[in-house]
Amino acid sequence: MSLADEVAAAHAGHPNPAALVGEFRRTSVLVPVVNDSLMSAELSGIRWLYAFSNEQELARFAVSRGAGPETELPYVRAVGARLLDVVIPAIEGPAGVVLDSGSEQGMVFPPVSGIVPDSVAVDLAEPDEAGDRPGVPTAGGAA
């Protein structure tokens, strides 16, 4: 199945996580660029890179953020594996990818083992002196 099919299956309640991640790794996605940097946002201590499955999803996202319908958001094209294996480890702190942000078919690829390299996976990180794992909410924290 294609990435779009795997995402649709996951949203329909029939996820196949290994196939979903595999398809993301093989698929070329669009990553918006702002001020010579890949567009991202931070939430709960995790940096999330934005990636889009096609130009229509990217344009919808840009309009939802206040851009005019004819405004083009610059982007680079990258294979999902390069984002997960090269870009994510180069970011200081925990980072993941959100695909088609704000869409009904949006999907997140969090910084956990099996998605990102083990060296940057938050579920494998060593606890700090307080016993907390970086980027992983504590029992009282919000996810």
Results as ranks from 00 to 15, higher is better:
residue 1 M to G: 15
residue 2 S to W: 10
residue 3 L to A: 06
residue 3 L to T: 10
residue 4 A to S: 14
residue 5 D to V: 08
residue 7 V to E: 02
residue 8 A to D: 12
residue 8 A to V: 14
residue 9 A to H: 10
residue 9 A to M: 11
residue 10 A to F: 14
residue 10 A to D: 14
residue 11 H to I: 10
residue 11 H to S: 09
residue 12 A to I: 14
residue 13 G to Y: 13
residue 13 G to H: 14
residue 18 A to K: 15
residue 18 A to W: 08
residue 20 L to F: 07
residue 21 V to K: 05
residue 23 E to C: 11
residue 23 E to T: 08
residue 24 F to P: 02
residue 24 F to T: 06
residue 25 R to Q: 06
residue 28 S to I: 11
residue 29 V to E: 00
residue 30 L to N: 06
residue 31 V to E: 03
residue 31 V to P: 01
residue 34 V to P: 04
residue 36 D to T: 11
residue 36 D to L: 11
residue 37 S to P: 06
residue 38 L to M: 13
residue 39 M to T: 01
residue 39 M to V: 04
residue 39 M to E: 05
residue 40 S to Y: 05
residue 43 L to M: 12
residue 48 W to I: 09
residue 49 L to A: 04
residue 51 A to K: 07
residue 53 S to C: 05
residue 53 S to Y: 05
residue 55 E to C: 05
residue 55 E to T: 13
residue 57 E to V: 02
residue 58 L to E: 01
residue 60 R to L: 09
residue 61 F to C: 01
residue 62 A to H: 02
residue 62 A to Y: 00
residue 63 V to E: 08
residue 64 S to V: 04
residue 65 R to W: 05
residue 65 R to N: 11
residue 66 G to I: 08
residue 66 G to M: 03
residue 66 G to S: 10
residue 67 A to L: 04
residue 67 A to P: 03
residue 68 G to P: 05
residue 69 P to L: 11
residue 70 E to T: 14
residue 71 T to A: 08
residue 72 E to F: 03
residue 73 L to V: 04
residue 73 L to I: 05
residue 74 P to N: 08
residue 75 Y to N: 11
residue 75 Y to R: 10
residue 76 V to Y: 04
residue 76 V to T: 11
residue 76 V to L: 01
residue 77 R to E: 14
residue 80 G to K: 01
residue 81 A to W: 01
residue 82 R to F: 00
residue 83 L to M: 07
residue 83 L to Q: 03
residue 85 D to E: 10
residue 85 D to R: 04
residue 86 V to I: 11
residue 89 P to Y: 00
residue 89 P to D: 07
residue 90 A to H: 03
residue 91 I to P: 02
residue 92 E to A: 13
residue 93 G to D: 07
residue 93 G to H: 06
residue 94 P to R: 10
residue 94 P to K: 06
residue 95 A to E: 07
residue 96 G to R: 04
residue 96 G to K: 09
residue 96 G to P: 01
residue 100 D to E: 03
residue 101 S to N: 03
residue 102 G to R: 04
residue 103 S to M: 03
residue 105 Q to P: 06
residue 105 Q to K: 12
residue 105 Q to E: 13
residue 107 M to F: 12
residue 107 M to H: 09
residue 107 M to Q: 15
residue 108 V to D: 13
residue 110 P to V: 13
residue 111 P to R: 09
residue 113 S to D: 12
residue 115 I to R: 03
residue 116 V to W: 05
residue 116 V to P: 10
residue 119 S to C: 09
residue 120 V to S: 00
residue 121 A to Q: 12
residue 122 V to P: 04
residue 122 V to C: 08
residue 123 D to P: 06
residue 123 D to G: 00
residue 124 L to Q: 11
residue 124 L to D: 03
residue 124 L to F: 08
residue 126 E to F: 07
residue 127 P to K: 07
residue 127 P to R: 03
residue 128 D to M: 03
residue 131 G to H: 00
residue 135 G to R: 04
residue 135 G to I: 11
residue 137 P to D: 09
residue 139 A to D: 12
residue 140 G to E: 15
residue 140 G to Q: 13
residue 142 A to S: 12
residue 143 A to T: 14
